[in-house]
Computed example of a mutant assay.
Amino acid sequence: MMIIDEIRKVAERHPAMADIGVTTVLALANGLVTADAGPGLADWLLFGTVHLPVVWRRRAPVAAFWMVYGLAVAAWFTARADFVYPVVVILVAVYSTARHRPWRQTWPGVTAVELTLLLAALRGHLPGSELAVLTVSLVAVVLLGVALRTRQAYLLELRDRARRLGRERDQQARLAAAAERARIAREMHDIVAHNVSVMVALADGAGLTALTAPQRAADTLATIAATGRQALVEMHRLLDILRDGGPARTPEVGLAPQPGFDDLETLLAQVRATGVRVMLSRDGTPETWGPGVGLTIYRIVQEALTNTLKHAGPGVTVRIRIASTADGVEVEVVDDGARRADSPSTAGTTTGHGLAGIAERVAVYGGRAEAGPLPGDGWRVRARLSLTENRGGT
């Protein structure tokens, strides 16, 4: 079996050489029978001419068949029939056509061979028993060729399907990796932008009070250090996910959970420490939507407060309203600060990575987000999450 498999592999790699080998073996087998009849030179030339087209049985099976058929018929109806042994060559040519070409190109040749056999039997050149044997042999080689061609087509389809599935799997993996990178990029932006903005505001305050209220400045510096450590812990968590694809662990806290709805007060306290007045109101009864929704709400508020710290003037007041309904949540963050004319946030409702991140987060839940200036001074960020089909979060 191993030898047959090796021969098959060599034949697949070198089809032309394989066809020459088949022709040679066929000629040698028929030549042993022909030699017993004592053929002359002309007989051997006819013998070789009948066998020669088999060399092209794979590359041009139909043309090879008709060449063999024409030469074999000429031999059948001459005195040379015993010397060329044409029946076996014809069966090989018929098999090659059925093996390598569709049925519509095979049946004319099969019909021609069978009619020729019937004509030879009627003229007395072929006994009835031999006619039956040859007819059965003809049907057998045709069925064998068709079966092998169908099997090959099936195997090729399986291989093609496996390649397509492999490409689709790789494409899905790349899309999933790109989506994960985008998600982590949003997380990194929110973490770094917010914490750095808080630290800058606190440092400005510490600088102003360092001489007049050194204890207060020292407390502010301690808050800056705590904020920086918190940012490092969250960044370590995300970088561990990028590196290992698993849960993040840090020496200080072990597993680092994602912030959620219940962490809003800690976030607001952090912002209030910079001198910004922040007021939070909640309408309705929050549903148990799951951690995914809680994280989205947290990041929306965080990004809005980050923009306020970066772009609003001093003494700003921020009002946050979270309205929960049976089918969704609306988050609105409004400040009364005066934006600078060159502030990136004033360029439009869709500019800035932070606002784009909010829109992407909200889109996951089938909602929409908008941001823009209010008449006079002030800025508003509003997001609506439609949670009818997202209970449980992700």
Rank of each mutant, 00 (worst) to 15 (best):
T135A: 01
A217H: 01
T24L: 01
D335G: 03
V84M: 09
T285Q: 15
R384D: 09
A203F: 02
V62S: 06
V10C: 12
V33C: 09
G376P: 04
A140E: 12
A173Y: 00
L45Q: 06
V73W: 08
I297Y: 04
Q270P: 00
R186C: 01
M199R: 07
T325G: 14
G228P: 06
A371Q: 12
D204S: 13
L387D: 09
E360K: 02
V278Q: 11
E389D: 15
A74T: 14
T388R: 15
R181C: 07
L280R: 11
E12I: 13
T150M: 07
T23M: 09
V139H: 15
L155M: 04
G275R: 05
S197M: 11
A226T: 04
T317C: 12
P86S: 12
D377I: 08
Q270N: 03
V333L: 10
I297M: 11
I322V: 14
Q105R: 09
A98P: 02
R151E: 09
R101I: 00
V362S: 00
V301A: 06
A273I: 03
A42E: 08
L41T: 14
G284R: 04
F65G: 07
K310P: 06
I320R: 03
M17E: 07
P251S: 07
L46C: 09
Q105T: 01
V133A: 04
V55D: 03
L387C: 12
G378Q: 06
V22E: 12
L309R: 10
V55T: 14
T150I: 02
L52Q: 01
A178G: 02
L122T: 05
L28D: 13
H236F: 13
F65N: 07
T34M: 05
P375W: 05
N307K: 04
A63I: 14
R167K: 07
G376S: 03
R186M: 05
D82W: 00
T349A: 14
V110W: 06
V110E: 05
V331W: 02
P257I: 05
G348F: 04
A273Y: 03
E168G: 02
A176I: 02
L267R: 12
L305T: 03
V301P: 00
D336P: 09
T388H: 11
E157M: 09
R384S: 13
M2L: 11
V133P: 00
P247C: 08
V33S: 14
G109K: 14
V136E: 15
R167V: 05
G109Y: 10
D160H: 10
N195S: 10
A63L: 15
D5I: 10
G128N: 11
A363Y: 00
T274N: 10
R167I: 02
G128I: 11
S281G: 12
L165G: 02
L268P: 04
T349C: 04
L202D: 04
L221D: 05
D244L: 15
T349K: 06
A42D: 11
A176V: 03
V94T: 05
A75R: 10
A75W: 13
A363D: 00
L41F: 15
T306K: 00
L122N: 10
T97D: 02
G290W: 08
V271S: 11
I191F: 00
T209M: 08
A140C: 07
D219H: 13
L158R: 07
G128P: 01
M235T: 14
E265K: 08
R237C: 12
T266P: 01
Y298Q: 12
I3N: 09
N307L: 06
W44T: 00
R163W: 13
G393D: 10
G352P: 06
G48Q: 08
V318N: 07
A248I: 11
